[in-house]
């Protein structure tokens, strides 16, 4: 049972904007980068119905990213817009965790990446929607319903692949071995998050972990795949140290704005 309490929260919507800005930006970058990765499947999905399912999830995340970017631009108060933040920053300025920038790989890799993210995203939003920052709580409230569906989608695919054929089991097992190391960063607070956790604006991630771990264990058990143990957590994305993949991703994502500055359509 999740018992995050915000009773020590001294903050309301009037949280120091300069403290809140990097965290909101991190949430925005995370949703944007994963949305872009999922959109790469568009037209290449294993079957039409799943092509659409991934595009739907990508659009949900993109919408969420926009809300965060708009709020971040407001918090920063330097006249930058959501587009400036999304399209005109370099890779080292991005604050997304490493997990979401990892390449799609095969369908199993995409599903495992999504499952690790969804499990974290769902539990984070569940806490944030009752948080003291009303703007953030509003975005979380709306996105929580979407995240609940995403988690259902990725959980069911983990189970189907694991409990499917010998080949799908093997591919799932491989994807888990490749991606589980990126899960730890999600719930390891970066300095920007620690500062907000101290004043109760962001939940203590330790309070989210029991529910997340129990859920993951339950899904993997149903999928008949072993859960990796003693995984070294790769991290760095949240402080701007990214894998090489992000640069390639951004060069495609930002191409239009870089080539035709200020273009709209």
């Amino acid at each position: 049972m999740l018992t995050q309490d915000f009773t020590n929260a001294t903050a309301t919507s009037a949280t120091e904007p300069s403290l809140l800005f990097p965290f909101v930006l991190q949430l925005a970058d995370t949703s944007l980068i994963l949305a872009h990765r999922l959109s790469e499947w568009c037209g290449h999905g294993p079957i039409l119905e799943q092509d659409l399912a991934m595009a739907n999830i990508a659009l949900d995340l993109l919408g969420e990213a926009r809300s965060y970017y708009q709020y971040a631009a407001e918090l920063e108060g330097k006249g930058r817009t959501e587009d400036d933040l999304a399209y005109l920053r370099s890779a080292v300025e991005y604050r997304n965790p490493l997990l979401v920038e990892q390449p799609n790989g095969d369908f199993a890799h995409t599903v495992v990446r999504q499952f690790l993210f969804d499990n974290y995203h769902y539990h984070l939003l569940k806490a944030l929607k009752d948080g003291p920052d009303t703007h953030l709580a509003g975005i979380a409230e709306k996105s929580f319903k979407e995240a609940a569906y995403h988690l259902k989608w990725s959980s069911e695919w983990i189970i189907r692949l694991g409990d499917g054929t010998a080949e799908s089991w093997q591919r799932l097992d491989k994807a888990i071995a490749a991606l589980w190391r990126f899960a730890g960063e999600l719930t390891t607070p970066a300095p920007a998050e620690t500062a907000l956790q101290e004043i109760g604006v962001v939940p203590d991630y330790a309070t989210l972990l029991p529910a997340m771990q129990a859920y993951a264990a339950q899904v993997l058990a149903e999928a008949t795949v072993p859960e990796p143990t003693a995984v070294f957590a790769q991290q760095g994305g949240k402080i701007g140290r990214h894998s090489e993949h992000l640069g390639y991703l951004l060069s495609e994502l930002q191409y239009m704005q870089r080539t035709y500055p200020g273009m709209t359509w």
């Binding site: 079957i47 119905e49 399912a53 069911e156």
Partner: peptide, 20 residues
């Protein structure tokens, strides 16, 4: 109509294809 491996997947696919 749509393709799906079983009823549960069919309902979920229908959600994604026909209730957007």
């Amino acid at each position: 109509s749509l393709h799906a491996a079983d009823a549960a997947m069919a309902v979920q696919n229908a959600r994604d294809v026909y209730t957007r």
